[in-house]
Nucleic acid binder design. Structure first.
Lengths: 112, 112
DNA sequence: CGGGATGTGCCGGTCGGCGATATATGTAGA
DNA sequence: TCTACATATATCGCCGACCGGCACATCCCG
């Protein structure tokens, strides 16, 4: 799973949302760093639907505009939780290793 | 940056390593889940060299076999630290949102 | 009436990961 | 000895995900 997809699942984790709202939510989550394009969005949405990680929660018309809302499935919830845990583990390991090498930039002599 | 690349940088974070050792190290870091192929490895290594995130640390012959070691550059260290922090933030946000929706599976009435 | 925000959707290009394949040496066992 | 496996590096082509660009439609504001 790649980052845009992960951000998408995260944006759906607390409540169902429709496409356009997801773009804004992803931007908010990533502190404005990730501007999701509609090409990425709908492609990813189709993929996630097919994988059963999300489902269509509602299809309504608001102010004359069609709006389709998506929600996480239980499988999606599980996948997101697993992914989050894995990423945290990698991040922790990366930081641990970095601190080791920073503390000892190079070894010059034995036992020293 | 994708996960294999992140794992590669992580594997280099505490000490320089050569290609084959990186495959094994990545496998160890990911608890055996990620089996890196040489196609992925050398492609990623070339990319990272070009981006200046890693550098060739040594080229030696051990037991008749050529061996090329790679090391993180300062830029690579910075990139890895930034990436780790970002991933941790996303993971935390994902887990926070999941716990919110699990605590309140659905809202049936107002103010209730 | 024009422009910007809201809203969904497709298409083609690009890039990274992956499987397959090739080459070469050292080591262990039948 | 011959065979198989671990060590070690490297290339190629395919595929899937992401991305920029585009199209289309409605609503609101000036």
């Amino acid at each position: 799973m790649q980052e845009p997809t992960l951000l998408l699942l995260t944006a759906l984790a607390d409540a169902p949302r429709h496409g356009y709202a997801l773009i804004q939510e992803v931007s908010a989550i990533s502190d404005g760093r990730v501007k999701m394009r509609t090409g990425t969005l709908y492609g990813a949405l189709d993929r996630l639907l097919q994988q059963g990680l999300i489902e269509v929660a509602a299809e309504e018309v608001v102010d004359g505009r069609a709006r389709r809302s998506y929600a996480l499935t239980d499988a999606g919830r599980g996948a997101l939780a697993a992914e989050a845990e894995r990423l945290r583990a990698v991040a922790t390991e990366a930081e641990r290793r970095l601190s080791v090498s920073v503390a000892r930039p190079r070894v010059r002599g034995a036992f020293a």
